[in-house]
Design a binder for these strands. Sequence first.
DNA 1: CAAGTTTGTGAGTAATTGCCCAAGAGCAAG
DNA 2: CTTGCTCTTGGGCAATTACTCACAAACTTG
Lengths: 317, 317
Amino acid sequence: MARRPDGSNRLDDAARAGWLYYVAGRTQDEIASAMGISRQSAQRLVSLAMTERLIKVRLDHPIAACLELGLALKEKYDLRQVDIVPSDPGSSSTTVGIAEAAASEIERWLKSADPIILAIGTGRTLKAAIDQLPGMDCPQHRIVSLTGNIGLDGSAAYYNVIFSMADAVKARHFPMPLPVLVSSAEERVMFHNQALVKSALQLGAQADVAFVGIGELGPQAPLCEDGFLARDEMDRLMDEGAAGEICGWMFDGEGRMMSGSINQRVASVPLPSRQTSIVIGIAKGERKYQAVRAALKGGLINGLITDEATAEFLLNA
Amino acid sequence: MARRPDGSNRLDDAARAGWLYYVAGRTQDEIASAMGISRQSAQRLVSLAMTERLIKVRLDHPIAACLELGLALKEKYDLRQVDIVPSDPGSSSTTVGIAEAAASEIERWLKSADPIILAIGTGRTLKAAIDQLPGMDCPQHRIVSLTGNIGLDGSAAYYNVIFSMADAVKARHFPMPLPVLVSSAEERVMFHNQALVKSALQLGAQADVAFVGIGELGPQAPLCEDGFLARDEMDRLMDEGAAGEICGWMFDGEGRMMSGSINQRVASVPLPSRQTSIVIGIAKGERKYQAVRAALKGGLINGLITDEATAEFLLNA
DNA sequence: CAAGTTTGTGAGTAATTGCCCAAGAGCAAG
DNA sequence: CTTGCTCTTGGGCAATTACTCACAAACTTG
């Protein structure tokens, strides 16, 4: 009999229990006796399956209200692709719901038999989305990161979205091993001449689809909190009228790229052309309202995944 | 809000409620007050979302495929107990995986506080399974061998499954000190009149659960290799359409017991009734596909422990 | 238009689940 | 071998959810 001091067997059991509970619809009591454990242990396994994200729940029904909002938005901002999920008034999470929807959309693209180039940004929202991806096997596709993952202090610990994603879907991937912001335009040139970065730049320009987060600016902006941007720089940007950022590219309230020096120091891949690619922004929440609206106004994105409340704001604003 | 007198609005509500419940993780009470309906109605909507399959749950773990296969097999062949373990495509072992699973299942039965009678066959697979048993102390149970352990040449060296097992779990045990095949029906009667054999026969008939291997036939069959059956007899059996054996009992491709003289010379305990007992077959591997299928078709077993690949064959065949 | 049928509602109740706590097993250090 | 620590287990209990029933509204049918 295999002893189970290690965790791997435990996850197996959790998967089993979770499957029996959610898919087969058994009660925890039945699972307990089927697996020869106490009900409490079964409950723990089921809950473990949840917290370990072994179980993925997804809603597949176009709710009329969301659909209508989506259609209206699509028209108003001339979008190629819109996905609206219901709002949860009681929750302050900035990812719940849209992460699942984004995962579903990403999966749809990855299921394509024809090889595609999928570009991806970074950030909490995208990380949450990637976590919802099922395991896949997509050697035909290429995934390219649009932005670096190294902070001001040199740490690379940020949400390594592209690695988690490539790991889940087993596709070739092209990370950007550099900071989001470098110290000068010259340094950027230097970074961009590195072989790895060069191929990311090339691939990014040819991307069929890109999934990007939309970041708000301000003292609590993730860009600040995660140490990509110093506080005083942020203040200056705000003074100059910056309203949001995508992959580090700063834009104003009308969605025009900021003209100051800041964008010359952004080392990210330029956003793929909205003429030839689909660039899908993923964001929700009151704090991001202005940033999302600006991105839409400026045509920086031509696809959107958001929630009802945000969609309503965007329609009426 | 779009008014809709027809049912589509109801499904929308169901989707919304289901989303709030499963994705956002709110309680039905919260959903009820958020949507302005009674808790019961909320519950109905959530359950409707489930029954209408608006909510898709899936489990992203290798185990999931096994469980699904198991459920399908259980239905197709009307089984009481199915256990599918992941296949290891790189291994040609006929025991790895199922031995552990079988041990785990045996252990589960032995943990019962109520005394049970556990019958057990023989063969490499079962030997590997009981090697996986942890030490236990089960004086309340009785273990009976379903089949003899003496070869054509009189040697008793075969996989002495029952002794190893009784040793490991410290239960009373009832071996069958005779050959698998005797020379004639008359000799069988003689053997069966021995006291030891008699009690084994009686116990076997009352067994609560039986674990048996499923043997394939052919020149490389273990039955031949281990010297229980002469080569020319095997050839004759194959000509007559024999497809497999369980504890020496030969059956054809439909799982019907062979009518020739061979089964009159099998000295094993008859398989316990599938009405009152659980008879669990343990087998995997391409060479055994036909034998396992026949055993299932004929209802010779009502439980199965096998691997994914075999399970897939059994489902599609 | 009335009777019958279907569908949805709320109340009450049984079943199921989630959580806290004390006890026990496993393990490392002494 | 003992001590102290952590992690896991199972019991008990409160919260949550599922089911049954009786009734009302809406809808169908003659």
